[in-house]
Design a protein around this nucleic acid. Structure first.
Length: 416
RNA sequence: GUGGGUGUAGCUCAGUUGGCUAGAGCGUCAGAUUGUGGUUCUGGAUGUCGCGGGUUCGAUUCCCGUCACUCACCCCA
């Protein structure tokens, strides 16, 4: 049997890579202008890191993590998400002594052992950012702003921002108590999953998709109207900020997060064309995580966006670069042709050509097929005159130019 | 982890109520007089019919298993 990629993983082939690279470039530029710096943490970590931070009760840690032991018996795990590693690194390198907030971003692969589905693979990629050390609603709004702008700048439309707050520890605890109280007498009406959630992770009942549960939840209290004054005020401030940026959002009182470390304001950016996995990006505050992991009490806020999910939404867009095609007629390639070709490339002109004997007709056909905006035709006549024909593939017009001027003329015709 | 659907050329798919050399479109390659593409025409190449086993004189078609893809649940970016 021929070896294939393992389940839930795939090759990102050159055919698709333009979109990936464009997305990465747009994201990096944007994040850098917002003063975030890239951090690259290891792909694998001690398994305990994720148990402590993401939470042992979550499926991510208890069922979906790739855990293995190395030759010395160390329990390691392929990272299932990004924030835990960054919190670890923040503590390990005493980043709390730097000017706060420390703003970090990452782009890379993550691993979860899940059943593959549209927008869900076992190796997947995220772009994320974290602003650590300052508890200001402006940073929450900034994170949301960035999370919206990355897909928007790529041309993704119809994004919806869902916003909520799950409160601080105090108001959340009070609310959970109320919620459990409300559901207690009706627990038998809840679905099997929600019965499990009732004891394991009650807030998760809020975003159950089953109609019977939705109805019961609707009749009960919402966290949004049970926030303490401080938490309500923060949520309202975030709203004010993102309103000023004309970000279209809506308060979703039943929005919760799956990871244990979230506190306060949380959000999701969703897109209807993605199917069941409709979340493009999500995030929120996690003010207790760093302290809980052994660092000083440090507030933080961040987000992560699913790269594959954005790529799905960009499937019919073309991000390929401009290029020219060099057609020539004496085979094998004359040394003058070779030198000209090398010169184009040394000057930063993305040049395609053939390396086997082809007719001129064939070469132009190829050039058109490859999407080259211009073709350069360098036959024996031109070579003897020291010229080359520059053909505009769109208008089918051409001019004969001097070999020496070719680079500057092409560069003027299209900025690379 | 649970449930449904699918698996035939590079791609999209047809097909055989079980039987001779398995098809189409697209793509690809070559050609339609000498150095000019995206239209047209002609011709060529390519498939262990996902893999393994069973039933049968005979299976790509039926059965079982398995792997993968896909959709939903679950989980979550």
């Amino acid at each position: 049997m021929v070896v294939k990629t393992v389940r839930g993983t795939s090759d990102i082939l050159p055919f698709d890579i333009d979109t990936w690279q464009a997305l990465e470039l747009v994201s990096r530029n944007l994040l850098e202008t917002y003063d975030y710096r890239e951090i690259r943490t290891p792909i694998f970590e001690q398994a305990g890191l994720f148990q402590k931070s993401v939470g042992e009760s979550t499926d991510i840690v208890s069922k979906e993590m790739y855990v293995f032991s190395d030759k010395k018996g160390r329990e390691l795990a392929l990272r299932p998400e990004g924030t835990a590693s960054i919190a670890r690194s923040f503590i390990e390198h005493n980043m709390n002594t730097q000017t706060l907030p420390v703003k970090l971003y990452y782009i890379g692969p993550f691993f979860r052992y899940e059943r593959p589905q549209a927008g869900r693979t076992r190796q997947f990629h995220q772009i994320g950012a974290e602003a650590i050390g300052i508890e200001d609603a402006g940073l929450d709004a900034e994170i949301i702003d960035i999370a919206v702008q990355i897909p928007s700048k790529m041309g993704i439309k119809n994004l919806k921002v869902m916003l909520n707050s799950i409160g601080c520890e105090e108001c959340r605890a009070k609310y959970v108590k109320q919620l459990l109280e409300h559901l207690k007498s009706r627990i038998k009406k809840l679905c099997a999953d929600c019965n499990r959630r009732y004891s394991a992770n009650p807030l998760r009942i809020l975003d159950c998709k089953k109609s019977e549960c939705i109805q019961l939840v609707k009749d009960g209290p919402t966290i949004t109207e049970n926030l303490c004054a401080k938490c309500r005020n923060k949520l309202e401030t975030v709203e004010k900020h993102i309103k000023s940026l004309n970000i279209d959002y809506q308060i979703q009182p039943y929005l919760v997060r799956g990871l244990d470390y979230y506190t306060g304001v949380i959000f999701e950016i969703i897109h209807s064309q993605l199917g069941a996995q409709n979340v493009v990006a999500a995030g929120g505050r996690y003010d207790n995580l760093i302290e809980q992991m052994g660092g000083k009490s440090t507030p933080a806020v961040g987000f992560a966006a699913g790269i594959e999910r954005m790529i799905m939404l960009l499937a019919n867009k073309d991000f390929s670069n401009n290029s020219v095609y060099l057609a020539y007629l004496d085979f094998p390639m004359d040394k003058k042709v070779f030198a000209f070709l090398a010169g184009l490339r040394q000057n930063g002109i993305h040049t395609k050509t053939t390396y086997q004997k082809k007719t001129l007709k064939n070469q132009l056909k190829t050039a058109a097929k490859l999407g080259c905006k211009f073709s350069l035709i360098l036959g024996v006549n031109e070579l003897s005159k020291g010229t080359v024909i520059l053909r505009d593939m769109k208008t089918s017009t051409q001019e004969e130019i001097k070999l020496d001027n070719a680079v500057s003329i092409i560069k003027k015709k299209f900025p690379l």
